[in-house]
Amino acid sequence: MKPFLDWGRIGTGQTTTHGTKPQPAQNMLAEIDDREILEKFKQDSSKNWAFAQLMNKYQKRIYMHIRKMVIDHDDADDLTQEVFVKVWHHLESFRNHSSLFTWLYRIASNECLNFLNRKRRRFLVPICDVQKELTSKLENQWTFSGDEIQLKLQKALLTLPDKQRLVFNLRYYEELSYEEISAITGTSVGALKASYHHAVKKVEEYLTKNEL
């Protein structure tokens, strides 16, 4: 096991620093690449190659997005595989109404929310047990990194409802615009702003109550 460091490989294969948003030029290149991937995927002779390019480009971001939601590696691994299996089966019918990137995030987000709902249904007492389980997994894994304030922040995030946590992650960690998050979640920009604002307030309250 090794700590995951360079999660943000975007577009041209360059490694970004943590939390920095890709520059517009990189975005443009990424869009051209996506178009090429889509065209090549439609041809039988280059289908596998195109899919390999797509996975190489997005697998780390999708995995990390899922991992932040489900915490456990095995669950994140299973869901990431499921996301890309779905992508394989539906990519040909993908229309350019949204970017490939938001489409992938949309599938991944739905997988996460469905997984957490299924998990919740398995427990008779909702919310608390799942939250406890995720917190315990988080604590077990955090011993390697030793960054206590980051652990506290993650614990605070686990007190949020799933969808609010999803919005927080997309805004705070991925630094996506509200329009992009709206395309991913299907929620209006106004509702997203309110949701993020409330999430930040709740997180700050938790951090104040549980100050080190």
């Binding site: 096991m1 090794k2 700590p3 995951f4 460091l5 999660w7 943000g8 943590h18 939390g19 390999a52 996975m55 190489n56 697998q59 780390k60 995995y63 990390m64 991992r67 932040k68 915490i71 590696h73 691994d77 990431t80 595989q81 894994q141 390697f144 990194s145 960054d147 304030i149 980051q150 922040l153 993650q154 705070y172 960690y173 930040v200 997180v203 700050e204 951090l207 104040t208 100050e211």
Partner: peptide, 24 residues
């Protein structure tokens, strides 16, 4: 405590070696 007081870092999770090489 404010959120800005915390340095923004991606959460560090442990991932098995060669995981992304084998995922495809």
């Amino acid at each position: 405590m404010k959120l800005e007081d915390i340095p923004k870092k991606q959460p560090v999770f442990d991932i098995p070696e060669d995981y992304f090489e084998n995922l495809p």
